[in-house]
Design a protein around this nucleic acid. Structure first.
Lengths: 349, 349
DNA sequence: TTTGACATCTTAATCGTTTTAGTTTATAAT
DNA sequence: ATTATAAACTAAAACGATTAAGATGTCAAA
């Protein structure tokens, strides 16, 4: 008997298959799910017929019954419509790729950080839309984490090494990254080292700052108030921060930044003030985005495998959701320094 | 009678509310959905109790019953893990914001363009996960569109003006953009104008090329084979393309590109070859990404409201899905020229 | 012949909604 | 007193899967 793929609008259901093969709906369901109380012959026959009829399970029915959605949530913080942080793009790709590989869907929502944000998380976790959520760019005293912990909702955090370790965590090691940068600059003879940091309420920025401070102390240096600014993750922010940094009577010989995009802005400002980047003033970034390599001059930066951060975060969360054993709940990637010309031209000849 | 919000793990269902208020499940459902065969008093009472008990509808049950998912799909093409195109980031934010505003979820998947891609679309539309899909960066003879048309699946296309108009369409007008650029350069006295285009199988690139060719013809110019290259959407691609362009005996006095990120690469290459961007060689981009404004020198480019493209695409698709009247099925944004120093320094004094 | 074990299936309940087709009650019209 | 109409509800059947519990038949052992 040949079963045509149904090409009308009607959807093929288990019931249709059951009628076609002359068995019960339960038998068909169990056959398709490889239960062993269905004889091998019937099983292959049923699968064959299901295939011929073009059966695809109704996900909503499955999800209702199984009380699971096989979907992860990710909320993209959006500062301004145009602002597209390469960090989040890369993270998203890592997460989405891994989700697909694991058979999970990824639900993406957006939100401007602030009060609304918690509401957005609340909506997402209260409506059975998703099984778990990925939180990126964690903050100190992060209300999102409080909420998720309180609601006992599964989640993984990307972006800090040092939170109260009650949940899954994936991060690069910002402090070590900062140390690498400072050590490099100090070895080149720099002593007046400025900092353009990202907002200090982010755990990343705080850890970066601590790392830098530590490395500076070891070199008997400290972070001068006059060489210290803070800005958001944008080129414009970096540009403006650098302008104030350079407005004083003395200028630093090196400027460390906590983000590549910010560094690009700093480079532009330094250039516009008549300095030669890499010669008069060394500049470093963080992240090693694609643009860093082809900046003018190419940007010394800290390599962070953002894609892997997203991928591993997703993998860990899925593993946990499946109830499988997780070898480690905290994953920290060691960063490495990528030395390019923005800090490698001839100083102090 | 006071109904406590239930704080145990159990979910509040219509049945719970029904028992609490002493009415039937149907009455509760109808009350919450504002049917007019429930008396105003009961309706407000039921709503009150539902609120107090912390009721949130089970989405999967609703979706199963209503046979709709209130979810849109978007497949992010990913060339390489690190490659994060600002265009797609901005598009995504526009789409996601509008989806949220319309009460829709957004499902994001990734895929490397090619054979797999159609499979990814097929999976998505076959499994009742989404009600409609947003297709970006359309191609000539796009297999994705063939598939969607064949399956009669609702979708909207972003990125071309000129397809067989059987579906929803949102686009900027690349041809006009190219014309603006060429007219500007010609007015500045340029006659040897090179082109670094993006891949010609994209409708965008083809339309850009046509626009440029037309404008050149009107100025009695043509696109010289020696000044004509093609590359993918990356700074590296632009860098390499520009290198081949500049390797000949004669060099163009202006290089038009079809993408800002590519333009940044071209600028780097031009600079590295010892030319001064904006003075020796004018360079233009397309898109007006944030980085364009702070490039060195700031990049002349075509303003495209990518955020709005995403937003409107989403809005149109949702309107269509709701069965509401759509004033127009094709929306084309007129681009405008943003003149900056990369094409505006002193030539031909 | 009875009993148990096993393989292979079926019945029916369930998930939480929505919706169709009534039912009940009160009030108004005949 | 009967009938019609409307208001305010309810019962039960969906939606399409999964699954617990039970049924049936076959075969071997007691």
């Amino acid at each position: 008997m040949l079963h045509q793929p149904r090409n009308d609008k009607e959807e093929v259901t288990l019931k249709d298959i059951a009628e076609a093969v002359g068995k019960s709906v339960a038998a068909v369901s169990r056959a398709l799910n490889d239960y062993d109380d269905i004889s091998p012959e019937t099983r292959t026959y049923i699968k064959q017929v299901a295939f011929e009829m073009g059966y695809t399970p109704n996900l909503m029915a499955q999800r209702l019954k199984k009380r699971t959605t096989d979907t992860l949530g990710f909320i993209l913080p959006v500062l301004s419509p145009k602002n597209s942080d390469p960090y989040f793009s890369e993270l998203l790709v890592g997460i989405a790729n891994e989700a697909t590989a694991q058979g999970f869907d990824l639900l993406v929502s957006t939100c401007v950080p602030g009060y609304e944000e918690v509401q957005a998380y609340l909506r997402l976790i209260n409506s059975h839309r998703i099984d778990g959520i990925i939180v990126a760019r964690s903050r100190r005293r992060d209300p999102r984490l409080d909420l998720l912990l309180e609601k006992q909702f599964p989640f993984v955090v990307i972006g800090t090494v040092d939170l109260q370790k009650g949940f899954l965590l994936v991060s690069d090691d910002a402090a070590t990254g900062a140390r690498l940068v400072v050590n490099h600059l100090v070895a080149r003879g720099h002593r007046k080292i400025g900092l353009v940091n990202t907002p200090m309420d982010l755990t990343f920025s705080a850890e970066f700052f601590d790392g830098m401070k530590g490395a500076m102390l070891e070199a008997n240096l400290e972070i001068d108030q006059n060489y210290w600014a803070e800005c958001d993750f944008s080129q414009k922010g970096g540009y403006q921060a650098a302008q104030t940094l350079l407005s004083g009577s003395e200028t630093p010989t090196a400027i460390v930044t906590a983000d590549d995009v910010v560094a690009l802005g700093v480079m532009a400002a330094v250039h516009d003030q008549g300095f030669q980047v890499g010669h008069d003033i060394a500049i470093t970034g963080y992240g090693d985005i694609l643009l860093a390599e082809h900046a003018q001059p190419p940007l010394t930066t800290v390599q962070r495998s953002t894609y892997n951060l997203g991928q591993q975060a997703c993998r860990m969360l899925v593993t946990k959701l499946r109830g499988e054993l997780l070898e480690q709940e905290h994953l920290v990637f060691k960063p490495s320094l990528v030395i390019r010309q923005s800090s490698d031209l001839d100083f102090w000849l």
